[in-house]
Amino acid sequence: MLEIKNLHVQLEDEDKQILKGVNLTVGAGQVHAIMGPNGSGKSTLSYVLSGKSGYEVTDGTAILDDVDLLDLDPEERAAAGLFLAFQYPVEIPGVGNMTFLRTAVNSQRKARGEDEMSAGDFLKFIREKAKSLKIDADMLKRPVNVGFSGGEKKRNEILQMAMLEPKMCILDETDSGLDVDAMKLVAEGVNALRSEGRSFLVITHYQRLLDHIKPDVVHIMADGRIIKSGGPELALEVENNGYADLLAEVA
């Protein structure tokens, strides 16, 4: 599914290396988690994969099902099946949530040479998805993320994920700013989307989220590299002992 090889990234504006050779392979249908201390490059990895400007890839590749993502514009990556759930979803005044979602769904369909979804079909589709995430009609009508609570913003991210049906989902600290109930709701939304053809890369600081979204593989990232990979037990180890032991082990 997703294969990242030797990925080196630096900031465009300053001579600062952030990713220093990331290697990561996520198989179809798998859930991988990335944990790591602040500043280890986790969020940078998610931005670079989804095509945010300001970063320069100096070496390496990131292939999603035969497509080299790093050559593509953000919208092309999305059409190729990549989705990033933002840590801080952006507020867009004046653009209705529904309009935004319909434009996104149909843009991707168009890019893939598929027919656009009719207004009726779209409405039916979004109502069904929104209901399971407890997103009411009012939230669909309001401008994108404007005035949404932290929990509403994250649920809105998962709604977009459900509507766009990506192959590869990256969740960037989706648990940040959520209370226990909201986290559960979001995790249920994610779990409902798990399937053989869809993989997840879950970036988190805390093991807590992984109680709800059970990973197949856990990676520890530090100083721009993945320093250790293992099963779900690795997350528990971090939760109990912190990163210090792991970092010492590698050093």
Binding site: S50, G51, K52, S53, D73, P74, E75, R77, A78, A79, F83, L84, F86, P89, V90, I92, P93, G94, V95, T99, F100, T103, A104, V105, S107, Q108, A111, P143, V144, Q160, L164
Partner: peptide, 21 residues
């Protein structure tokens, strides 16, 4: 970036934002 990451092409994303403004 948010709009484009959802698959909305650059020009269309810009138009959406301009018309919203």
């Amino acid at each position: 970036f948010y709009l484009r990451s959802r698959g909305v092409p650059e020009k269309e994303a810009q138009n959406l934002l301009v018309i919203a403004f």
